[in-house]
């Protein structure tokens, strides 16, 4: 049966009326803060305790917005007669967010987990120079980094946990064996 003439018009009216009765999903941003998931690309936090000044992040950065200065210090030998070790000490770590394009490559390449995404995004400035966040400011952003989302229920165990568990089991087994021999 052919549709009644004008049924399309009525359908259109029904659609708009139904939309009107539904609750609007608009978020009133400055009044209500958005609920952003972990790893949202807001700002980059630096966990400087983990940084070894390997410079990977600065070299991989596509627009060269990471500035790192460091110097070497010698650490006295751990064992008597051993060789003195040298170690990198971080002097300056700065990210120019006026240049940053939020690609996240620095965070991906960091082998020591020293860089993290934080969902904070309200750091606009009236002076472009203020957008270069120095080491202390980058460290402060670390407090705003949320815990990563939980793994999927059937996901593989994370590698570091698996490794830690294996070591713990081995140790426990090694401790248990001599005890059995004594008794």
């Amino acid at each position: 049966m052919a549709p009644l003439p004008g049924s399309g018009l009525a359908k259109g009216l029904a659609v708009t009326l139904r939309t009107m009765t539904k609750k609007s999903v608009t978020a009133q941003y400055p009044d209500t803060q958005p609920d952003l998931p972990p790893r949202t690309r807001g700002v980059i936090g630096l966990f400087e305790e983990n940084c070894t000044v390997c410079m990977l992040c600065a070299r991989e950065c596509p627009d060269w917005c990471i500035y790192i200065d460091s110097h070497k210090e010698t650490v006295p030998a751990a064992a008597p007669g051993g060789r003195e070790r040298s170690r990198n000490v971080l002097d300056r770590f700065a990210i120019d967010f006026a240049l940053c394009m939020y690609c996240g490559i620095c965070i991906e390449v960091c082998p020591f987990d020293a860089l993290f995404w934080s969902p904070e995004f309200e750091y606009a400035e009236t002076d472009i120079r203020e957008l270069t966040h120095e080491r202390d400011k980058l460290r402060e952003w670390m407090w705003t980094v949320p815990a990563p989302p939980a793994l999927d229920p059937a996901a593989e165990e994370p590698k570091e946990i698996a490794a830690a568990r294996k070591t713990a089991e081995k140790l426990a087994a090694a401790r248990a064996e001599p005890q059995e021999g004594e008794s």
Binding site: L17, T19, M20, K22, S24, V25, T26
Partner: peptide, 13 residues
């Protein structure tokens, strides 16, 4: 307001 809500918006707030 009606137009806004019919289009899934809030309109002037």
């Amino acid at each position: 307001k009606v137009m806004a809500h019919m289009q899934g918006r809030l309109g002037p707030m």
